[in-house]
Write a protein that binds this DNA or RNA. Sequence first.
RNA 1: CGGGGUGUAGCGUAGCCCGGUAUCGCGCCACAUUUGGGAUGUGGAGGUCGUAGGUUCGAAUCCUGCCACCCCGACCA
Length: 492
Amino acid sequence: MDNKKIKRSDDYSLWYNNLVKNADLAEHSAVKGCMVIKPYGYAIWEKMQQELDRMFKATGHVNAYFPLFVPKSLFEAEEKNAEGFAKECAIVTHYRLKTDPDNKGKLIVDPEAKLEEELIVRPTSEAIIWNTYKNWIQSYRDLPILINQWANVVRWEMRTRLFLRTAEFLWQEGHTAHATKEEAMEETRKMLDVYAEFAETFLAIPVIKGRKTENERFAGADDTFCIEGLMQDGKALQMGTSHFLGQNFAKAFDVQFAGKDGKRDFVWATSWGVSTRLMGALIMAHSDDDGLVLPPTIAPVQVVIVPIYRSDEEFTKVNNVALDIKKRLEKQNLSVKYDNRDTHKPGWKFNEYELKGVPIRIAIGPRDVDNQCVEIARRDTKEKQSLSNVDLEHKIPHLLEQMQKNIYDKALSFRDQNIHSVNTYSEFKEKLEHPGGFISAHWDGTGETENRIKEETKATIRCIPLNASIEKGTCIYSGKPSAQRVLFAKAY
RNA sequence: CGGGGUGUAGCGUAGCCCGGUAUCGCGCCACAUUUGGGAUGUGGAGGUCGUAGGUUCGAAUCCUGCCACCCCGACCA
């Protein structure tokens, strides 16, 4: 391992890549653009999955699984959706290899094994799902359908970055079908709220809920909503999206139902998703120059116990106390690791667990045992204190709660300090470069202005915030009237 | 797809301009001393120098092709 610590202020991008590697979260694979998610990184993703899955089920959804491959004819059925994804699709054209007659030991694609119809590796599953829903829906009694699937998808990206943008990524995609427009819209907004709550309470990342502009809308949607987070380098990250699909897919796949009055109508749809990109958000929102900082809720290991000793006698003495504490903490449903390896020194372990973002470290040495106390170090503030062993199993959960709040509050105040309201284009450009962050500005509502600003500054409209006060003004670029301020930022 | 860069032990690298069979650090193995913030010493193992070809008595080094990955742009969750 290279111990050169890259600071965020030196090179944010390099800091991120090193952290992902050094904290054992993921690494590049032999496949271009695809990553290997390592056990520690995957454990964090699993915790995200568990919590999201619980929230989806609590809002009435069930899980199912649809195929990885989408026949081209189905894929192209919803025109806008197909067009939107066409440039980044992987395509299966053959189903067999054979030994190269000219080069033994090598394989070639068997030209005789060409598929009659190409298969698209799903970049998203609307097509295959709506083709299936068609068979499931005849009457209003069959609605709503509230299904989620956990899956991998492939989008052939030119440039990739670990977790933030990879050719293959893991995600969940919800696909729902409704009898009315109102119900579908309500579902869209409900799932946006679920995502926002998840991001804020579980990942401790404050987010802004908003609506996407037409330019940024999901291909095939009538309306796209998102949650946007702000990273420590001042760039925005889209952390989740929820789409109101109108009747677009129902029309493309001819999914109609008979209402109570016997009249037939097309079904209303939504889809919503979050991906392993959230891992990137988690890393970039909280971590520092010493490594990962994980909110206690998401940490695979919440408390690590490190014994300190010289002799076998001392080890026995310390070990008994450590095991007792571990047992007591586990009874409180905490995830505790007792690292009693003799192959590494305590100082080495301290650094290791800081790098990996373990929220609380408990060090126990002979002196502590004599004094009936332990040394507690918290990762978020790096403070150390000596705590009495008495009732420790209740003090630790309390401390973890405080840490969760502290980590959120820190991210929140950073975010709030980095929303800059501007009234002129020159001020806009200045703020965008200097502190960065979200720039709140008036916009005339046209895609043309949006594109011009993007070309000139690289900032995009992240969203039209939902909870903002309506304030009329004039567009910073065109001077035309504007109904509301929108949030611009440079984004990942 | 355009521009730049890198491929040498598990990881990070020196050597390349100026050709003579590979350097150093981390890690790994053994033993000893160590253990309250990344221990020290001694000994040891590990390499078809990305790949294919060419030049040469001889190639990590020079030449040509190919491949892979990273970074910067255009495209995107």
